[in-house]
């Protein structure tokens, strides 16, 4: 029986397990390369930074990519240096390399991740659906300052979220933090006024439409470039707003989807709390 075990035995056992884990980790750390020796030159993702994956594909075909002793880049790959504001017509024009990996090179991965988030959100709404509604006993109305202030702040926060996911290929940020920022603005609206509830059906429709937009963009790539989620728009000069092809479109779709999804989750959590 678990409940017969005294508390102290459990704690000692837990400390033992944690100690074994940490000692094991530190034994592994001594085998790891030191900080100075780690270099992107020896990993796969250097071609993402160079924005030239075609080179990697050619080398894989020749069978010369995964050598034991990889030489520095300048000896085996002819490359054109990338200059901010000057280089044009690259394979992927986003200035933010993380964005170009998330949306372009590994876009299919991100589609699966958005699906996981959608399943989690719909699970929350399914589990918390259909609670009994009761009349609130006592109600403390939020003050006038909160009511007005959260509305003004919400407009600014909403604008900032849209800025973050439109400029995802130039500055740090992107669709996921932009959507989270919009959702926290909506959380502020919940706090400012008791009984506030957004248009639930509107949120659901909005979220489904933006999810569909992602898949439709992928299918357009399949038709135009013969590959799912391929970039079908021209890329411009690196550093401009219109420089990254379809990355901005997909990040707008992701931002709207994540924002409406997290707002719906917050709504499902908060609505029954207020009907105490």
């Amino acid at each position: 029986m678990m409940s017969d075990t005294p508390e102290i035995v459990k704690k000692v056992f837990a400390i033992f397990v944690v100690g074994v884990l940490i000692i094991g980790f530190f034994m592994v750390f001594t085998q790891m390369p030191k900080g100075n020796e780690v270099n992107v030159n020896n990993t796969v993702s250097r071609f993402y930074v160079m924005k030239d994956v075609d080179q990697a594909t050619q080398m894989l075909d020749k069978g010369t990519y995964f050598n034991k002793d990889m030489v520095p880049l300048r000896n085996d790959v002819p490359y054109t240096p990338i200059t901010f504001g000057k280089s044009e017509n690259l394979e992927d024009g986003a200035a933010n390399v993380v964005t170009s990996i998330v949306v372009d090179y590994r876009g299919f991965d991100t589609l699966g991740e958005v699906t996981v988030l959608f399943l989690a959100a719909s699970g929350v709404m399914l589990v918390l659906h259909g609670e009994k509604r009761k009349v609130p006993k006592k109600k403390i109305a939020p003050s006038e300052i909160m009511y007005v202030g959260t509305r003004i702040a919400f407009s600014v926060i909403f604008l900032f979220g849209i800025y973050v996911f439109i400029h995802g290929h130039l500055t740090p940020g992107g669709g996921f933090p932009g959507g989270a920022i919009i959702a926290s603005g909506i959380l502020g609206l919940f706090l400012g006024r008791q009984g506030y509830s957004p248009n639930k059906a509107g949120l659901t429709v909005f979220e489904s439409l933006s999810g569909m937009a992602y898949a439709i963009i992928g299918i357009i790539g399949l038709v135009a470039e013969k590959s799912f989620l391929a970039n079908f728009l021209p890329t411009g000069t690196i550093g401009n707003l219109f420089s990254a092809g379809f990355i901005a479109l997909i990040y707008i779709a992701i931002g709207m989807k994540v924002g409406s999804e997290l707002s719906a989750v917050t709504n499902a959590m908060i609505v029954d709390t207020e009907e105490d």
Partner: peptide, 25 residues
């Protein structure tokens, strides 16, 4: 950081000097 800006160049003399962007994504 793995972002091209006016003052931040990721490839110097053929060596990539940025942090690895793949685990970050």
């Amino acid at each position: 950081m793995p972002i091209y800006t006016a003052t931040n160049n990721l490839v110097v003399n053929g060596h990539v000097i940025s942090a690895d962007p793949l685990p970050q994504s």
